[in-house]
Amino acid sequence: MIRLLMDTMCKEDRLVDADLTTGVLQPNRAVAARLRERRREDIALSDVMSEFVWVTARFTASRPEGGDIVLRAGYGDGRPAHIRMTCAVRDVREQFRDEEYSDGIEFQARCLGKVRSWNRQARELTLDPVAIFR
């Protein structure tokens, strides 16, 4: 099902590809058009609003007070920021609930998410997760 979704989103140019391990961000047509309107060539992940994002990053996970699993991945130089995704425990595979993901260990993953918001003060881009692949 995810493959069909990804193929369709790529074909219709609805996906922004963000590889935070290399710093490469590939905008879709909509994001590229907004940047041209603003006469900007550089793109920051905070410029990607209301889009689906395919993110490759090194994440850490936490589970505050036994609640949902919160994934974070940092990005950027100078004024670093981070991505945040909250995953409902009931919706993740059992192996992902293991304690090793709750004590701050870094792991690489690819995630498909929908941008929810950008918090300028916290420098935090919040994504609603669709799928996470380790």
Rank of each mutant, 00 (worst) to 15 (best):
F59C: 06
A122L: 14
E124S: 14
E100G: 02
Q121W: 07
H82V: 01
S117A: 15
E124W: 03
Y101L: 07
C87V: 13
R72H: 13
V53L: 05
S102P: 00
E106A: 10
A81D: 02
E94D: 12
C87F: 12
R110V: 11
Q95D: 10
R90T: 13
N119F: 04
M85W: 03
Q108F: 01
C87M: 14
F96Y: 08
G66A: 09
P64V: 07
G78V: 06
R97D: 02
Q95I: 04
R110C: 03
M85R: 02
A73I: 03
A122P: 00
V70T: 14
F96V: 00
M85Y: 03
G113V: 09
R120V: 11
R123M: 08
E65I: 04
F107G: 03
G66S: 10
I69S: 06
L125Q: 10
D98K: 08
Q108I: 07
D68Y: 03
G76L: 04
M85P: 00
A73S: 07
K114N: 08
P80S: 14
E65Q: 15
V92T: 13
P64H: 06
A81V: 10
Y101E: 00
F107P: 03
E100V: 14
F96Q: 01
H82F: 14
I69Q: 13
V53I: 14
I69W: 12
A109I: 04
D77Y: 09
P80A: 11
D68A: 13
E99P: 02
V53Y: 03
S102Y: 00
G74F: 10
R84N: 04
C111Q: 01
D68R: 04
D98L: 03
L125N: 01
N119W: 03
G66L: 05
L112F: 09
V89M: 14
V115C: 12
R58L: 11
Q121V: 14
I83D: 01
T60I: 15
C87A: 12
V115K: 00
G66Y: 06
